[in-house]
Design a protein around this nucleic acid. Structure first.
Lengths: 242, 242
DNA sequence: ACCAACAACTTGTATATACAACCAAATTGG
DNA sequence: CCAATTTGGTTGTATATACAAGTTGTTGGT
């Protein structure tokens, strides 16, 4: 068996979809119909349908049938990497300076984001990330004391907060926003900006099983840092493997 | 059957992985072992293993066994959506104004990005995207005449360039960078910024089968626009469906 | 005309079986 | 002692079957 039967069926279906012989939201042959067409068992035909469904190419409804999904995702993805990994993968020297690591009364905005009460204690850290000894990013992070009680005891010159948090409580989700801001004097000072310039601010909220773990404001000068990515769209073409 | 058997097996395995009873790269029970433990057929146990593999939680090797995958992605993804969709999904009114649609001699930077020669003709369009009649994004786009010969004949008040390009040549890939910039006077004018402010600039290069299709500079005022997302990490928690 | 029951078809779950492909370790032969 | 072979375990593919669960259209009865 050079190529598996279910794979042949998949390729056939993909080609029909690509040449739009089967347009979006049209019904495709049922499991039994495919089984008969290709002289295979229903379970084999089913597998082809199943895998195409997992790839987002079809959608199926019990009792109704299988249909071609809308191929326009109209969206693509930007990968957001850990700053230390990013600098290292560029072959540059990464370092960090811990400026502050304390407990604070929780500001209102932070309280809402972390599910705490206003003025309840919250851990706070302030770190500058440097690339070849030049400040690249200022990280202001609030951490939930309930979920990470030992946060303030860590030595973040050895390990980045992100690494520590990933280790302590496996992160299940993250929420990001990216915006362009005008830095305040405090930020300029720590990023050693002679003149203020537009900065990229990434706000990252991370979650574990038990809830929101931390909220971090990552601010970088626009002239030194950009987010970049190169990712595929969701509908894989059959020639994708080239 | 309240919950499917294969789903129960999946949950059991996920819990074992999460409490690190089965550490990374350790072997998990074989299909036959699971089948016996749960008193199901091999095919049912296999399905649990299969689906966890598709989710990237396990990896399997024929003749060897199934193993826990490394869960450290250390990176997450930010979804970049089409501006029109984004405005519409907020329930606001989307509109656009076409400011320019011409052929130009290709600037050097654009030529490199699109695989053209310097001063070779390239199509250029300039569009302002508005949310509730307020300018939200200035789109300056260069399009390869080879791949999209009819670009300048389109009516982009009817259809956005992104929609048209998606329709003409199915986009297979996109490359993005995001940065914070200081807008020039030209940009300020079209975004109707009384005072210049930091802007978010998304540079998007799209590809089809035949090569680079277009390069777009999407500039938005920092005070009006941010990129946002909420995406899961690679290891889904069992509560993910909440 | 309306509604209930039914029939036909769909996908979803589960089983038992068979053989193929592959790998690693044990066994065997030289 | 080394190398080839065998053996047992593992995943991969495929089939035939059975029943559950959901949808839709038809058929009958009132």
């Amino acid at each position: 068996m050079a190529v598996a039967k279910f794979a042949e069926i998949k390729e056939y279906m993909l080609s029909q979809i690509e040449i739009a012989a089967w347009p979006e939201h049209s019904r495709v042959p049922s499991e039994n119909e495919l089984a008969e067409q290709f002289s295979v068992s229903r379970m084999t035909a089913r597998r082809a349908l199943q895998e195409l469904t997992e790839q987002g190419i079809l959608y199926r409804t019990q009792g109704v049938g299988s249909f071609v999904a809308a191929l326009k995702s109209q969206s693509s993805l930007l990968e957001i990497r850990n700053i230390a990994d990013e600098i290292n993968s560029r072959g540059h020297a990464y370092s960090a300076r811990l400026l502050q690591l304390t407990e604070l009364p929780c500001p209102t905005i932070i309280a809402a984001a972390l599910g705490l009460k206003r003025n309840e204690p919250v851990y706070f850290s302030l770190i500058v990330h440097l690339e070849n000894n030049q400040p690249l990013q200022l990280e202001a992070r609030y951490v939930s004391p309930k979920l990470v009680p030992d946060y303030v005891k860590q030595d973040f010159n050895q390990q980045t907060p992100h690494q520590y948090l990933s280790f302590i409580a496996p992160l299940t989700e993250a929420e990001h926003t990216v915006e362009a801001i005008w830095p305040d004097d405090f930020t300029c000072k720590h990023l050693i900006l002679k003149k203020a310039e537009p900065c990229l601010r990434l706000t990252r909220r991370t979650f574990s099983r038990e809830g929101a773990v931390s909220l971090a404001y990552l601010t970088s000068p626009g002239s030194r840092y950009r987010l970049g990515g190169h990712l595929n769209f969701s509908l894989p073409s059959s020639r994708e493997t080239i």
